[in-house]
Design a protein around this nucleic acid. Structure first.
Lengths: 342, 342
DNA sequence: CTGAAAGCGCTTACAG
DNA sequence: CTGAAAGCGCTTACAG
């Protein structure tokens, strides 16, 4: 007997009906112990695996969730995936991982594909391009189809769905207060991720804190290409003595460039960055950083989806903010609250 | 009209047959221009998306490949994914990304799930547990079912399928010769990834090179918990003056620990690690490293699968080794061939 | 150019 | 306890 094994072939081999085989394999109470045994044994012998397309066509349920991240090279997003994968499995769902590469078109294609595959829900962190163009129609399609949608980290208020984030603005603010209280006078906000909601929020927090103490705002955006020489020159000329960086890589690249130019860190220049990854953790000096709670965001996103699917389909959108804090490490070590590196 | 749109409903609305609608949407030459136009317009109006389960049930083709990585926190594997995602799209395949978390059982479940979903081929880098237990029956299942299988990076010879890797042994050897030629006398091989094929190969290359010059082998394995104090003590007591590390994290953690103890790097201690990621790239000193060619491995794995599927189903297994080289950076900067940091 | 019909492999309400 | 039949939404060989 060649080709894939299926219920029909099993039924023929056993001389019973397809219905009985199907029920036996699903351990239905209708079927006799005896028959079940025969069926299961033959199925195992032939390594029978049910055709999921047929099953899903019948049930019209995929028991699958989709998660879309804008890129995979930031460790934050791998943390998100770890949390999401685990939580999905715990809840008995498959998880389809997709990467938009910061492209709106790609985001659209992925969403269409997920719809085509009847995912039960989608979690997404928006691409830069989507933010920039402030586009949401591809997301609204999901709501029209009653497919639960959760935005995480890079979110937008342009659509009525659940969101998950940390309080970027507040945490930026708190970071600045710490730096100010440590007598830092000229604090730079350095951004490596323009065109994202999180960057705007972090910048807002920075500005709020700086203004509240009547200090000068110093903002600098470095787009895709980090220019060491330029940044150091800027830091020197502005007599910057502390930096809040929008992301880990920008923070580390800046520390590196400054160290090479002889800056003592944190003595002459204190640095705090957003996001805790290996880069900052293992640097010398290790980077004080605001934990973006990647795993928690991923976990929470999946949990919310499952909740919508299984319970509160119609409830009001939730906007969840995950608690976080600054991890004090060596790049602000002179500070009172500095702790042992971890 | 509520619920999902489908061919039947479209046909009713248009007062034509389901067959005609189906053919019109697939742009069949059988159908008149006029009819096609009507059908397509109505379909778009209703945001009709065909049910892929039904399509796949008919065709029994998923046009989907699966890729299984053991973990997502090593940047090497995210590079693999980037290459694989791009190559899959180029070839018109979907790609299902799965993470085994170094667990054999998880690997088994993932493979069963992929079979159930009729993937056309699978690329996998084996989990530590799979290596340790030297288990291959779950892989053989795939061959039994004529599902193309490609192993990459963490491979095994225990199964007759295509493999992709870099020449770990040779590259370790070359790294050691460079260190020896630079007058390093006591070279340590430090491993943070026991129980993998790549570690064995790297160690073999190390041993071969060391022995060929009649030097003493110094091997040290640090399992999951890197113990700074212990490693530094070991390096001191053995008067180690160069290190080949099995992976980037181990290399960086060691550099960090030694720097804190006052070691001048590379003058007193030269370090080369396997794998090029952000960690090594942005460190001070930046890490000289052997490029594992993640993106190329991912790309090549997908290409091989597509080839098998579309052409050489029956050809002999291929064992491809991707060319690579040492990227010279600051942690071996005194070397002749040292180049500007990149 | 259009349509009726069979069939992909499953599940399940219903009959016996 | 077992089985015949309908149906999930599509595609396609065949008839007209």
């Amino acid at each position: 007997m060649d080709g894939e094994m299926n219920l029909k072939k099993l039924a023929e081999l056993l001389n019973i009906s397809i219905s009985t085989v199907s029920k036996a394999l699903r351990n239905s109470p209708e079927i006799s112990r005896e028959t079940k045994k025969r069926v299961v044994e033959l199925a195992e012998l032939h390594n029978y695996i049910p055709n999921s397309f047929a099953q899903k066509l019948k049930s019209n349920k995929s028991q699958t969730l989709g998660i879309i991240i804008p890129e995979i090279s930031h460790q934050f997003f791998t943390h998100v995936l770890e949390g999401a994968v685990t939580e999905a499995r715990l809840n008995g769902y498959n998880l389809t991982i997709c990467i938009s590469n910061e492209s709106l078109e790609s985001e659209r294609n992925i969403i269409n594909n997920l719809i085509r595959n009847h995912v039960d829900g989608i979690a997404i962190s928006l691409s830069e391009e989507t933010h920039q163009k402030n586009e949401t129609t591809h997301l609204k399609t999901l709501l029209d189809r009653n497919i639960p949608l959760v935005l995480f980290d890079r979110i937008t208020s342009g659509i009525a769905c659940d969101t998950i984030s940390i309080n970027d603005s507040l945490n930026a603010e708190l970071a600045i207060y710490e730096l100010l209280n440590n007598d830092r006078r000229k604090i730079l906000y350095l951004s490596g991720i323009p065109n994202t909601s999180v960057n705007e929020n972090r910048k807002d927090g920075y500005i709020k804190a700086i203004r509240s103490r009547h200090r000068p705002c110093i903002l600098e955006v470095n787009y895709d290409n980090f220019d060491e020489a330029e940044i150091v020159k800027f830091i020197k000329s502005e007599r910057v003595d502390a930096i809040l960086a929008s992301d880990e890589l920008t923070a580390i690249q800046t520390i590196r460039a400054c160290k090479i130019q002889g800056y003592k860190i944190p003595d002459e220049l204190a640095v705090i960055g957003f996001s805790v990854g290996n880069l900052g953790k293992h640097y010398l000096p290790s980077l004080s950083a605001i934990d973006q709670k990647g795993a928690e965001q991923g976990k929470c996103a999946i949990k919310l989806l499952v909740d919508r699917i299984e319970k509160n389909f119609e409830a009001e959108p939730l906007n969840i903010q995950i608690d976080t804090k600054i991890i004090h490490r060596e790049s602000t070590l002179s500070f009172s609250s500095a702790k042992k590196i971890n």
